[in-house]
Design a protein around this nucleic acid. Structure first.
Length: 455
RNA sequence: GGCGGCGUGGCCGAGUGGCUUAGGCAAGGGCCUGCAAAGCCCUGUACAGCGGUUCGAUUCCGCUCGCCGCCUCCA
């Protein structure tokens, strides 16, 4: 079975689903106040791949991922643009899902919204107060981290050492600098909800506890997100769950950052590229391939060079598929290669080792070409079908490279070029190739005729 | 200051106590081609530095240097 690196353990552990054959996962989703950047794309792709792989392994997965639509930054933007927070939130949520669709990220089965859970958050905060693990501060209700014995587990640090490095501005009334806001009082005239303690807004760390427990129960298999969420966000979620005596998530999984040069890409550093910008010039599948070619916990450098390399690698995969199609091989009846499936499973089971898995698939691609060269069409079909199937399991669909319908002027030039070649007028032929090239099309001469593709 | 991680051939990027050079991209040579392209074959002898453990370390341990992340909002 699958083994994954569990942040709470600090090591790779065997993943044993709570209910055999089923898997429940909660992945922290975006705060919708701006466009999604490459880092969001990576986490979404990583957990999309995890989900798809679990499903490929035959598990019935329940994937929940939230939309955080209550946040100070949403309010700031709304005020700056003189519109309501909900308008801002719904705009960026819509854009989020349209970008995710381009990336081929499957929609989670449930998409809870924080605003729909404020009532439940208030109820949870009330219970935390009753338990004596929360207290009233000057500007809100705070969680008392000293009440959780192993606070700091996900940071792999003790409360003492966390305190030692705390950079957070001290508020005198807080018992510990690590204590965090559960409820923030606010002016009733601004964006706020009613609570027994007065109008206000919920702190960020409570919503995921309430939503995950509501939809997946007090005990579920996996909780995930970007590495930057491990502390304090996930730790604070865990602290609340501990205080409530929930069993909560069995495993905590985090993906590494997208780097810009040697710096983490983040909104606060302002060094981000939006996914939409990337996708204007890049096949979304190339970004998925780039993500797959590095391990999910490693930092990933995304720049024009690494993107170009992935694009190039992708187009070679596509052209191999095209070769198989051109050879007239019917892959629908092809058996899959068991040995390859097994190797794929082993790589993926080993902490989602997609670089090894894809490396193997590139070798398979080479094998398909060799078999085609040798005229072993049936074997080539089997290998190609396996390759397509396994890339498909990773959410990457391969397809042929030929344009379904060429513009008529392009078609006409191609025909004229063929005529020129048939009478060996290669000077004209080369001029026409140049013309096509200027129009953005590449032509390749093959035994079965010219192949035209967009460049 | 505390904690965690990283340093692999031109670049990206896996992995391992000794089998056999992961893989991708780029490069060089060859086959094929009117020329190209695609494809195939061949080529580069890498694991930061210094010690230690070991019959043997890129892989284990220690130290040094360099880099990064978290401890504040962040995927």
């Amino acid at each position: 079975m699958l083994r994954l690196f569990d942040t709470a353990v600090g090591d790779i552990v065997e993943i044993v689903p709570i209910a055999p054959g089923r898997f429940s996962m909660y992945v922290c989703g975006p705060t919708v106040y701006d466009l999604a950047h490459l880092g969001h794309g990576r986490y979404a792709l990583v957990f999309d791949v995890l989900r798809r792989y679990l499903e490929w392994r035959g598990l019935k997965v329940r994937h929940v991922s939230n939309i955080t639509d209550v946040d100070d930054k949403i309010l700031e933007r709304a005020e700056a643009e003189n519109r309501s927070p909900s308008e801002v939130a719904s705009e960026f949520e819509e854009k989020w899902f349209s970008t995710m669709a381009k990336l081929g990220v499957l929609k989670p089965h449930e998409i809870p919204h924080a605003t729909a859970y404020v009532g439940q958050m208030v109820a949870l905060i009330g219970r935390l107060l009753d338990e004596g693990v929360a207290y009233l501060g000057e500007d809100g209700i705070y969680f008392d981290v000293s009440k959780v014995g192993d606070y700091g587990l996900l940071a792999r640090q003790s409360l003492e050492s966390l305190k030692a490095g705390a950079r957070i501005a001290e508020k005198d009334f807080k018992k510990s600098p690590m204590d965090f806001a559960l409820w923030k009082f606010s002016d009733p005239s601004s964006w706020s909800w009613e609570s027994p303690w007065g109008p206000g807004r919920p702190g960020w760390h409570t919503e995921c506890v309430v939503m995950s427990v509501d939809l997946l129960g007090e005990e579920f298999d996996l909780h995930g997100g970007g590495l930057d969420l491990s502390f304090p966000h996930h730790e604070n979620e865990r602290a609340q769950a501990e205080a409530m005596h929930y069993k909560f998530s069995h495993h905590w999984v985090h993906n590494g950052f997208v780097m810009v040069g040697s710096e983490k890409m983040s909104k606060s550093l302002g060094n981000f590229t939006t996914l939409d910008e990337l996708l204007e010039t890049t096949d979304p599948r190339a970004y998925r391939l780039l993500v797959l070619q590095s391990h999910y916990r490693s930092p990933l450098d995304v720049n024009s060079q690494t993107v170009a390399e992935a694009s190039r690698a992708l187009s070679r995969l596509d052209s191999t598929c095209q070769r198989v199609l051109d050879a007239g091989v019917d892959m629908t009846s092809s058996q899959l290669d068991e040995e390859e499936l097994q190797a794929f499973r082993e790589a993926m089971d080993n902490d989602l080792d997609t670089p090894t898995a894809t490396g193997r698939l590139f070798e398979l691609r080479s094998k398909v070409n060799q078999l085609l060269d040798d005229g072993m069409l049936e074997e080539a079909g089997k290998a190609c079908a396996t390759m397509e199937h396994l890339f498909g399991a990773l959410g990457l669909t391969l397809h042929g490279t030929e344009e379904a319908e060429l513009p008529s002027n392009v078609k006409e030039i191609v025909e004229r070029r063929e005529e020129a070649r048939s009478v060996k007028d290669f000077a004209l032929s080369d001029r026409l190739r140049k013309e096509l090239s200027d129009l953005g099309f590449a032509v390749e001469d093959t035994p079965s005729g010219p192949k035209v593709k967009r460049r």
